[in-house]
């Protein structure tokens, strides 16, 4: 089974966030966008849980900036929309959580 790019557009308080974390494996990748960017805030409980899943983490720059969390990021790669497309080139399958 091929690896999956998970895209999470839901707040860390949502069921979608929990479901995503249950489904993801360390071979997959996770892109936070929309309301999902709040999970990227360093040292938050959500951020700790994301780091524990072992998958590479990405966050969409424009959404992180709009949410005001851009200065609060640690150990997550910031990508623009071009980077999102590049992730879909690398990962043949995508799962959208929202």
């Amino acid at each position: 089974m091929s690896v999956i790019l998970h895209t999470l557009n839901a707040s860390p308080a949502s069921g979608a966030f929990d479901d995503c974390l249950r489904a993801i494996t360390a071979d997959d990748a996770l892109l936070l966008l929309g309301d999902g960017v709040y999970a990227a805030m360093a040292h938050s409980r959500a951020w700790e849980r994301l780091r524990a899943c072992g998958a590479p983490l990405y966050v969409l720059r424009a959404d992180a900036s709009a949410a005001g969390v851009l200065p609060l990021l640690e150990e997550i790669e910031v990508v623009d929309m071009d980077g999102f497309v590049a992730l879909t080139e690398r990962y043949p399958r995508q799962l959208a959580w929202y």
């Binding site: 557009n9 929309g34 969409l60 959404d63 929309m81 071009d82 497309v85 590049a86 879909t88």
Partner: peptide, 20 residues
């Protein structure tokens, strides 16, 4: 409402620019 529709437009533009 939400972000998905905006993401889709921006993603489409970027994908086309990348030659897809």
């Amino acid at each position: 409402s939400g972000h998905g529709a905006r993401h889709a437009v921006q993603f489409a533009r970027s994908a086309l620019q990348r030659g897809h």
